[in-house]
Design a protein around this nucleic acid. Structure first.
Lengths: 211, 211
DNA sequence: TTGGGGATCCCCCTAAATGGGGATATTCCT
DNA sequence: AGGAATATCCCCATTTAGGGGGATCCCCAA
């Protein structure tokens, strides 16, 4: 249903009601036209291929494939894609990695509704859009050491409450190795124990609670 | 802005953009009229007092005071209040306690957008509205023991990653007592260790991550 | 008033987690 | 080829967590 001279938008969010709300919100604007919806990252990639929208409004956390992964994939195939990430605030890590993945902008769900349209316009014009309160931090930060992929893997598994032995079995490595990773995790994150590692990881957006 | 013969609605959600979306969605319906918004439970109570809307569309998880607490409070003051809870699926416990608190209905954010209107109508007419897939379970359940206030307190403090000794100092009790509470928590929640207790507690909405 | 639940405290014991020191192989980058 | 980073494994030691018993005390409701 794309009309001439309107900006076509693909909405990606796992909450159907939120999608309906966003669509209603954008459809009140003459310049924007919601041409498609997707409920997870995988479907977002498929829909992008079919629809080639001018903009993608993408939620961060979704089942199956999250916003970051979908963004990375879409941008790999279509470097000119314009993607605006929409998310609850989860820590700078999440914003940072979204931008790394190729998103052009980032808007918090709890920022005023009026902020959405300027952000969409900016991204459409190829500009970056980052919440003011974060922009500064993003520049002069990062004394925090980055976790390796494997360490993130271990950290994510910690949320299950498994012991080191159980983790070792599930990961098919020895308990020694699990402990080695964990030691590195605790050191890098500057936390005292696995419980704090999990809660800090959740707050920073490094890991998430299972569905 | 309430017109004659329309149903006035108060929207409560901590995400401004979601509120804007819901408002846009409801305003496309002739019969509904969004007369107010609130961003947390406290403001919801205040707004309810001022506006006396026909319906409240209330998000479950919010800072300051969550949907359950606000619902309990509003229903205590106004037993005739019609409140529809809107939330991500978080386990039956959350639904159950919402209904106990006085909500007339419960809708998942990831159910189709079309489900919202019938739910609002049902609640407006004084009927209950519960997601089909949950209704059956709610009847024959509840083997989960409830945590005491003190236990919830301990559980919440676990997210800091403190050791039992540190918790004891901060709570000004002995480590023995902390361990006693913890033992009870682990037993009631049927989890194996403090880390799992924290993640399960977060998922059930019993506790939350600090801001 | 008698009971029960909750909060507090105590002991003992085993299993688990943590912190220190290592070693080796692979992969990737220069 | 050389070097860095990563993942994997191992030893040691101490601290902590968790499970099993308990015991008071207090308050509130039957």
């Amino acid at each position: 249903m794309k009309k001439k001279n309107t900006i076509s938008i693909l909405i990606v969010d796992d909450h159907s009601i939120v999608r309906a709300g966003l669509k209603a919100l954008l459809d009140t604007e003459e310049d924007f036209c919601v041409v498609g919806e997707a409920e997870n990252g995988l479907k977002a990639i498929q829909s992008y291929e079919c629809l080639r929208p001018d903009l993608v409004l993408m939620d961060q956390r979704m089942p199956v494939k999250d916003g970051r992964e979908a963004t990375r994939e879409i941008c790999r195939l279509h470097p000119a894609a314009r993607i605006l990430m929409l998310s609850t605030y989860q820590g700078d890590e999440e914003i940072n990695s979204s931008l790394e993945a190729g998103a052009m902008g980032y808007v918090f769900k709890n920022s005023p509704g009026e902020d959405l349209l300027p952000a969409l316009w900016a991204v459409f014009k190829g500009e970056h859009w980052i919440p003011r309160e974060v922009g500064s931090r993003l520049a002069g930060r990062s004394t925090l050491e980055k976790l390796t992929d494997r360490e993130v893997d271990v950290l994510q598994r910690l949320v299950s409450g498994d012991s080191n032995k159980e983790l070792a079995d599930k990961m098919e490595i020895t308990e020694h190795t699990v402990k080695a990773h964990l030691k590195s995790i605790l050191g890098k994150m500057q936390v005292r124990d696995r419980t704090e590692a999990v809660t800090v990881g959740l707050r920073r957006g490094i890991i998430r609670l299972p569905e």
